[in-house]
Nucleic acid binder design. Structure first.
Lengths: 140, 140
DNA sequence: CGTGCGAATGAGAACCGTTATCGTTCTCGC
DNA sequence: GCGAGAACGATAACGGTTCTCATTCGCACG
């Protein structure tokens, strides 16, 4: 359960995004998705639900939301971006290479390792991304 | 120093790739680059060196080399792929957010952590990617 | 309640990185 | 040299994303 169906407009306002009907539709559709979706998938699903949202609006909304940190952008398909409604806190992702399931990893005990690895090359780490690829319970 | 200037054709043959003049040019140009480059950058540099290599060949060669594991593909620019000649062994990358410098992290002591994190969600990890973003020594 | 103004939106064109096509050239074993 | 198959260059095609612009909407103010 990625996010509660209720409170989506609060989620927007908390991030200084005006809660318009279209944006709520996009967000609601995102909240329905367990894994991740492309902008085009999201758009066609909205169409099926008789939303009048245009493709440009879907892209604009997703760009806005990712900028605000409300959605994560995964580019594991090279050339096509995938979006996912995620928690606010720092987290990583677990990807099933077979069914493309996406699961959040909440616990990241990697800060020390990251800082040390960075320091070793004269860097100061400001952020890090980890993706674990594997097989989920259903696909094993 | 990512790779020795010599031995590029051996590098190709070791990976079952026929060492043609074009491919060597592409590889040589990749070896000159400390960080990472896009296909288009690489192509225009080759042009400047009076190489007759076409853009399609550059893309074909990069696709082939990445398939063979000779080059790494980084998609941290969303929409545009960056290529880098990297070592064979499992490694990660350190990125400078200011000058876009890329450094390989050879030591990855993360296998246990990865396996544990995967297991906790019912996954079996087969691979993982880590990118550390920060500031390099020069940019601090 | 109107009114006005700036933000948001939809349709479609434009953009741009990448890939496919196709005719030509090159490579290499014979 | 010769022939078959791989590689190549030019360019068209493709597909995801962004831009443009005219229209509509949301909301504060009168």
């Amino acid at each position: 359960m990625p996010a509660p169906r209720q409170g989506l407009s609060e989620l927007l306002e908390r991030n200084a995004v005006r809660a318009t009907p279209r944006r709520l539709e996009v967000l609601e559709e995102l909240a329905r998705e367990r894994d991740d979706v492309t902008a085009q998938q999201l758009w066609s699903r909205l169409r099926e639900r008789d939303s009048a949202a245009g493709l440009a609006t879907v892209y604009r909304t997703l760009a806005l939301l990712s900028e605000k940190g409300v959605v994560d952008v995964l580019s594991h398909h090279g050339g096509e971006q995938c979006y996912r409604l995620c928690g606010d806190a720092h987290h990583h992702h677990l990807l099933c290479e077979r069914c493309h399931r996406v699961v959040e990893i909440q616990e990241c005990g990697l800060d020390d390792w990251v800082a040390a690895a960075a320091k070793q090359h004269g860097f100061v780490a400001t952020d890090h991304r980890v993706e674990i690829v594997g097989l989920c319970a259903d696909c094993r």
